[in-house]
Each structure stands twice: as C-alpha cells, then as structure tokens.
C-alpha cells in the first residue's frame, strides 16, 4: 500500500464510522415513523432519537447500591465492540477498510461480545427483571448464533470466502445472476436473524412498557444517563450494522470499487436509499405481526436454520439443468 492509499483508507474508515453512528438513530426513527404511519398515527418527530440521546447524555447516573464495576464497564465494552465491528462490513467503498483483518465470523464474535457484556451487567443489580431479561436475551442469542454462521457459510460458498468484501465484490461483478435461490434463502434466514438480534417484533417489543414482557428493555432497566445513551445508541448501531450487511450482500450493486468522486457519491446515495428502504420495510413488518410468546421464538430460529441449511443444499440442486 502506498501512503496515499493508506491515507484514503483511513479517511474511508473515519467516514464510515461517522456514517454508521450518525445514521443509527435516524434509521430507528424511520422504523418508528413507518410504523406509526401505517397505524394512522403521526408519530414522533424524525429527530426524536437524537433529542433523546442528547437528553440522556446530559443527565447524571445512579448506580444500584450492590452493583460492582461490571455495571460501569459493560456499556463501554458493549458499545466499543459494536463500534469495532463497523469497519469489517462494507458500507460504500470496497474493500472494507479493515476487511483484511477479519471476516464475518469476527463480526459474529464482536456482536456476541456486546451481548454477553450487557447480559452479565443485567445480573449485577440483583433485581428480578435484570435476570429475566438477561436469560431471555442470551437464550435468543444462543438460538440464532447457528443461523449467523450458517448464513455466512451459505453467502460465502459461491465466492469461497468468508470475508465480507470478497462476498460483496463477487456479487457485484456477477450481475443479476447473483440473485440465486440459494442467496435468497440465506438472506431470508438472515432477515429472521436480524429481527432477533435487534430485538424487533415478533421476538421482542422495543416499545413495550410492561416489565414482564420485556427482553432487552428489562436488561437495561437499571441504567440511566450516559450509560443508557450508549446502550440505546448501541442498539441502533447494531440494527444499522446488520441492515447494512443485509443490503450489501443482497443488493451489492453500486458500491464504489475505486476512489472517484462520482463513484463515491453514487455509492453514498445508493447506500442511503437501500438502508432507508430496508428500515421502512422493517417498520412495515412490525405493524403486521404481534409479539410472539417467548418459546415460539425457537420455532423462528429453527425455521432460520432450515432456510440457511437449505440454501447450502440448494446451491448444488438447481443451476445444473
């Protein structure tokens, strides 16, 4: 790499981090807006999540008497691991800035780290709700971890690589043939995973106010102030990360392959369009389903395994004729 390229890569890295973090609340807002519109409500303003974060940032924090250092460290580690996952996902430029250093399995690991820390910290306060949320969240996480791995295998099989950049590049150069049934099935499995990982309906209700039905909200019940702001932002960041991975693999076209003003601008615009459309779709979906009983979520997980493994088998079924 020449110094020039290193500089550009650093710039891309910084831009993508800023984009991901900056965009995260907006996409959450789009989901909410779409949801309220299809329920014939006006809904909160589009910048409400930003205002909420600013408000939380200005507030002080109270920790539970019996809590240990884990409570204080968890939001930091949890958020930092999500942040660290950003450069391993292609956003608007290929290859992803740190794509050489890790593949999608690293993303799985970092997301798991984030989940683990939040779940551990939820037990620290010693309240019933924390434990309830923690066990449910880890339960869901454990069930969907195979899905993530299977989807990575299915996505990676055609290009023979688990690197996000290679998968996306392979798809982008393939043209319409990229949209094979195997890819669609794997992406459907990933969509289920996305619902579970980001705590959307029907797995978890992000808007609930009843402690007994909460999963994620119950876990973070004891947090406030900047810690809560980090957790909320982290939850949005997790969503934008997975949404981006989803659209980048499913619809890889338009991502910039070289430094050029036109290519970068086009890629940026397309990225925004894809992400906004995906989150609007998510909001639409949320109005159409009700929250499921916790144990039915396992059915969803099994369906996602079936889809992902089916995708692997399918790669070798069709396409011969």
């Amino acid at each position: 790499m020449t110094p020039w390229e290193i500089l550009l890569t650093t710039l891309v890295l910084a831009a993508e981090l800023a984009l991901a973090v900056g965009l995260a609340p907006l996409l959450t807002s789009v989901v909410r807006r779409r949801k309220s519109r299809s329920q014939r409500r006006t809904g909160p303003s589009m910048i409400q999540p930003y205002l909420d974060l600013a408000k939380l940032w200005g507030k002080g924090t109270v920790y539970v008497e019996s809590s240990s250092a884990v409570t204080r460290a968890a939001p930091l580690i949890s958020f930092a691991s999500l942040l660290a996952a950003v450069p391993f996902v292609p956003w608007f430029f290929l290859p992803a800035p740190l794509g050489f250093a890790g593949d999608l399995i690293v993303v799985v690991g970092l997301l798991a780290l984030s989940r683990f820390m939040t779940a551990v910290a939820a037990l620290d306060a010693g309240s019933t709700f924390g434990g309830m949320g923690s066990t449910r969240d880890m339960w869901i996480g454990a069930l969907f971890e195979p899905t993530f791995l299977l989807v990575i295998f299915a996505w990676g099989a055609p290009s023979g690589s688990t690197q996000a950049s290679t998968i996306v590049l392979h798809g982008a150069t393939l043209g319409a043939a990229h949209l094979s049934p195997a890819l669609l099935l794997a992406s459907a499995a990933f969509a289920l995973l996305l619902l579970a990982e980001t705590g959307r309906l029907p797995v978890d209700n992000p808007a609930t106010h009843l402690e007994l039905t909460m999963v994620h909200e119950a876990m973070v019940l004891e947090y406030g102030g900047r810690d809560l702001a980090l957790i909320e932002l982290g939850q949005s960041l997790r969503m934008v990360l997975l949404l981006e991975l989803f659209v980048a693999v499913l619809l890889p076209w338009g991502i910039a392959l070289s430094f050029g003003l036109a290519a970068l601008a086009l890629a940026l615009v397309l990225l925004l369009v894809k992400l906004l459309a995906a989150s609007a779709l998510l909001g639409e979906l949320e109005t159409r389903v009700a929250k499921w009983r916790l144990f039915r979520v396992a059915d969803l997980a099994v369906l996602s395994w079936v889809l992902a493994l089916g995708s692997i088998s399918l790669t070798y079924l069709v396409g011969v004729g």
């Binding site: 393939l174 094979s180 669609l184 099994v302 089916g310 399918l314 069709v318 396409g319």
Partner: peptide
C-alpha cells in the same frame, strides 16, 4: 456460473415452491 436470466428466474420460482412448503410446515 452465469446463467440466462430465464433459467435463473426458474430457479427462484422453484425456490419459492420449496419455501412455501417449508413455511406450511411451521405455520
């Protein structure tokens, strides 16, 4: 493997047939 678009559509439709029967298993 690059396929004719028609062939590819055929595959997608076949996958739809498969997936609908899967979903009817879990619905």
């Amino acid at each position: 493997m690059s396929l004719a678009p028609g062939q590819q559509l055929l595959e997608v439709l076949a996958a739809v047939v498969l997936v609908t029967s899967w979903i009817s298993l879990v619905h």
